[in-house]
Design a protein around this nucleic acid. Structure first.
Lengths: 201, 201
DNA sequence: TTTTGACTACTTAAATAAAAAAGTCAGAAA
DNA sequence: TTTCTGACTTTTTTATTTAAGTAGTCAAAA
């Protein structure tokens, strides 16, 4: 069982490497198998279909993200700084996994099946809830005014995601946004976050 | 000359009617001509090509918008209320001209030519400048803190536009967003605007 | 000066064929 | 028994051709 899990993880890692370069749709099960020097049916022994593999990949990426974010959660720093830290974490993930199009608040074209979309939305919801919890804690500490924390967290995250999606839409139509555009997205997200959090006081 | 301008305007009005229903790309010059009971070459007498006609349409719509907005501009009301008013104006335009996809801060697929995109971006810039001017006035009155007004106005408008684009992406994949989704967009934009303006104090 | 029927050139959409990828299975290797 | 594979089938994607539709022109008429 432990061996099996190790193999599963190795496949997921291999898949991620391909996905990062070529995206989910442009990566074939054959390529993933070849990279790992195994046959395609071996992959299908560990994952019933491509969707399950993609699901495993998304799961791993989001868990990495939540691990990082939840580590910062305990520290007793001002809300604005905490949010700035999260933005930078998300920005690194956004950059690294750009080709997977996991960016916006909404499931993208690359997640074809309903199952994947649902799973993605669950992760998204977990992120909102995490932010809502932090907002609630800040309310309890008197750092910001009382409010509907979940709705506010949703609005906060969507406003940041919206900035990203507009910047990408605006920018060059290349496969990958430029360093400059990336920097711009980060700067604007930090600005907006600062104003938003200040507006919650 | 006055007669010619009248005919031009009539053509623009006819084109808008079609565009509202079927969008720019799914409307043919023939259809516009038939609606007005004239021949296609008549249209080409007044507009050298379809782009020019679309340009005239966009120009008219934006001028209508700026007329409405600049009317409210003189009134001496709090910044937040002023912005709320503008959001409602834009929302009405968004709803009415949804099929033209003039919504986001970025030129959409329906604006094919560079000329149109440039013109659209000029209108977009004018809107940012208008908001920057209002922000500057609010700074001068001491209603909000000093800042880079243009950049802030850009961020403000993009954060609102981002909300719209995410809501549309999220929502049903129908041609038209539902009444409920529209209401949701408006409510969230008003919420975000309130928080944002408060954050500028 | 303004309008039109009849025309051409170009673009888009539909249909079809070819290629590639997902997924299966009987059986071999560990 | 669990893990793995070569050879296969089915489905999906992509490329190619074909047909249809649309933008734009022009000589001539109102």
């Amino acid at each position: 069982m432990v061996e099996t899990d190790k193999k599963r993880d190795a496949i997921i890692e291999g898949a991620i490497k391909r996905f990062i370069h070529y995206g989910i749709n442009k990566t074939t099960m054959n390529e993933i198998a070849e990279d790992l020097s195994v046959s395609k049916p071996s992959l299908y022994y560990y994952f019933p279909d491509k969707n399950s593999l993609v699901l495993g990949v998304i799961d791993k990426i989001f868990n990495d993200y939540f691990d990082l974010v939840e580590k910062d959660l305990s520290a007793d720093i001002p809300l604005n700084e905490c949010m700035a830290g999260f933005i930078e974490i998300r920005h690194r993930f956004f950059q690294k996994y750009y080709m997977l199009h996991l960016s916006g608040g909404s499931p993208d074209s690359s997640l074809n099946s309903e199952e994947l979309k649902t799973h993605f939305m669950r992760m998204h919801g977990r992120n909102i809830q995490l932010h809502a919890d932090i907002f609630q804690r800040a309310v309890d500490k008197g750092e910001i005014s009382p409010m509907e924390v979940y709705k506010t967290a949703e609005l906060y995250l969507d406003s940041l995601a919206g900035i990203t999606s507009l910047c990408i839409l605006h920018g060059n139509k290349e496969l990958f946004p430029s360093k400059k555009e990336m920097k711009n997205i980060l700067d604007r997200q930090l600005s907006l976050s600062g104003i938003f959090i200040k507006g919650l006081k």
